[in-house]
Design a protein around this nucleic acid. Sequence first.
DNA 1: GTACATGCAAAGGGTTTGCAAACGG
DNA 2: CCGTTTGCAAACCCTTTGCATGTAC
Lengths: 137, 137
Amino acid sequence: MAELSNLEQLCLDKGLKMTDQRRTIARVISQASDHPDVETVYQRATAVDSRISIATVYRTLKLFEDANILIRHDFGEGRARYEEHGDHHEHLIDIESGEVIEFHNSEIEAMKERIARDLGYELIDHRLELYGRKIRP
Amino acid sequence: MAELSNLEQLCLDKGLKMTDQRRTIARVISQASDHPDVETVYQRATAVDSRISIATVYRTLKLFEDANILIRHDFGEGRARYEEHGDHHEHLIDIESGEVIEFHNSEIEAMKERIARDLGYELIDHRLELYGRKIRP
DNA sequence: GTACATGCAAAGGGTTTGCAAACGG
DNA sequence: CCGTTTGCAAACCCTTTGCATGTAC
């Protein structure tokens, strides 16, 4: 039945030791279309396999993040959220529902690079988040 | 001698009760050109008046933030930083020194508004931070 | 086998809070 | 005076860690 999720394949490619816990966590993230926080990942993982502790979730997410398999976000809620490392995009956070909308804008991408360079810096990372309220017609 | 700092004047304008602690914290922030974190504000404040507790610093900074006198930043370091609420600008953080460079770019400002609107949202707030490494010639 | 991964519970860092005492307007 | 503010210490939340046990390769 279960074929390998993208993340599982990536872990194998990187030579990470694949435990049941890591497999489960990888699948949970692979199947998530939202940007779950650690507690949510933990709940979804334990629903599949109860032999997973929150400490392992923290350790595994960090491992995956360091392996460039995941991206950790801090949307200012006091806890981290994760998503699979895919195409680069930015986020608009619905301040009423917490929903996260992804978008991409290449003009802004280019501009960020230029601004950093003009200030004498090499752009290593950046963060662009919009916080908005849905306009009801 | 001491004339009122901008912040002190603002507090009075807003009808906030002015205690010695609040006055001191207001001056510390007014005089800061960096973006101090809570601990730093606390140290600078107690250097002026030792009768100030860290709890009061937290409470006062939050009070000022709610009164729109201060802006709280979360640069992903796990602790908040504050600055006086002045002209709007963005930040470039030197990932090696922690130094914060301010900049403003009206093209990006306009673009953020437009992106949110195109997604069906009213832009309430946003966050744009660049993280870079100084280019040494 | 052996180095690495895990669970548990305790510790950690930043921040908030309950309470009695002190204080501002 | 009376409601607000403060200091203190304990509580909180999210996250990390020490240690003995279990496991992948």
